[in-house]
Nucleic acid binder design. Structure first.
Lengths: 207, 207
DNA sequence: TAGATTGTTAATCGATTAACAATC
DNA sequence: TAGATTGTTAATCGATTAACAATC
């Protein structure tokens, strides 16, 4: 089927499918079905089949999906069948935890540049490879290295300013840990991580 | 209006509204409108009015919403007009960053118990108040302190096991940083934070 | 073949949006 | 009063789900 603009909500589920498939693969499992996958994820089997149908046919009647194959296909669809260079802005507690987090590198997201404005942190070497740079050199470095993805881990009051610089430098995707809604041209993707909003979404149901 | 089961997607937007209102309040602003709020958040004004209408009438024709008042009301709706005790399981890099993160306490989420299984970390004092405990004492301690919210910051392979213990101990809301979908009774709320899935959701749009 | 499961269609369900009377 | 903005209704839009022919 041709690409008739796949809904973003579908794109949002693909990484979840991918994660589950990777787990099954690592467990040595070879095949799965939309039913089994849905069961594990708390999602209807019809939804999984519908989601996948936006991109092609990946299964076989009677036997379901070959895990390795489907995994590869979803990786390609999401463009994660390659390595990505990532810039990290902010090297406080949070930034440091992010820089040390192995999960990114494992999935091909490599932090290749780190920026800070606290002079005591500049020059520090992280993981024996990346040196913390002064934030004033952000635009030049990002443009030069053609980095397209950035992580924002600075305090809320400066996050918008940082985002503006990133956009100017050509960044096309921002993962922001700052608890504010950024104003960003719609040619640039943004995703937010704010643990507090997640908490507040749950307390509604508690008494 | 009576509560005819408010959609969860609406509940999910309330913390965002609350965050924006807090920001405006701190900036000294007194009134806002659904239009202004929507503009700042990239959401339609009709949607904001519709969302709020599930809970009552909070504005005035012609002038809009008094920020302090609306903020208070949303806080009450979300049950964040109080303090919450939180248990943290896992005190590795991520757990430590979470324990040090001021954002939780600022919003009334206080980490009152921390559990680990690495004996070298047990007994350590965090922020001059909470002592890292052996995970074997988890059930007793959580039951005893009647803690209803927990943060899971353990490696994926043990996350399900930890979640089961938390549920047994009476926890009703789990914020999980483990990159797996947990199997949890639907009497317990779960929210996930997985930065990698957010990244993968964006790379789809990059080339 | 008999059983299982796909991909897809059509029906249902739910959420968003536009429009406007009410009213501050 | 004139202008602005609410809360709500109805229309639209989009997503989920059920059902099933196709087929491995």
């Amino acid at each position: 089927m041709a690409t008739t603009e796949v809904p973003d909500i579908v794109i949002g589920r693909l990484p979840i499918y991918l994660r589950a498939l990777t787990l099954m693969d690592e467990a040595g499992q070879e095949f799965t079905s939309s039913q089994e996958l849905g069961q594990k994820l708390g999602i209807g089997s019809a939804q999984i089949r519908k989601d996948l149908s936006h991109f092609g046919e990946f299964g076989k009647q009677g036997t379901g999906y070959e895990i390795k194959y489907l995994r590869e296909q979803i990786s390609k669809i999401l463009h994660v069948d390659r390595d990505w260079s990532v810039a990290l802005v902010g090297f406080g507690d949070l930034g440091q935890a992010i820089a040390n987090y192995a999960g990114f590198a494992n999935e091909g997201f490599h932090i290749q540049a780190i920026f800070e404005n606290d002079s005591t942190k500049i020059g520090q070497k992280v993981n024996d490879q990346v040196v913390v740079e002064d934030i004033t050199g952000l635009s030049e470095r990002i443009t030069q290295q053609k980095i397209k993805i950035a992580i924002v881990a600075v305090p809320a009051p400066v996050a918008q300013e940082v985002a503006d610089k990133l956009v100017d430098a050509g960044v096309k995707a921002i993962l922001s840990y700052a608890p504010i809604t950024l104003s960003i041209p719609d040619t640039v993707r943004v995703q937010y991580i704010d643990p507090v909003t997640h908490m507040q979404r749950m307390t509604y149901y508690l008494d």
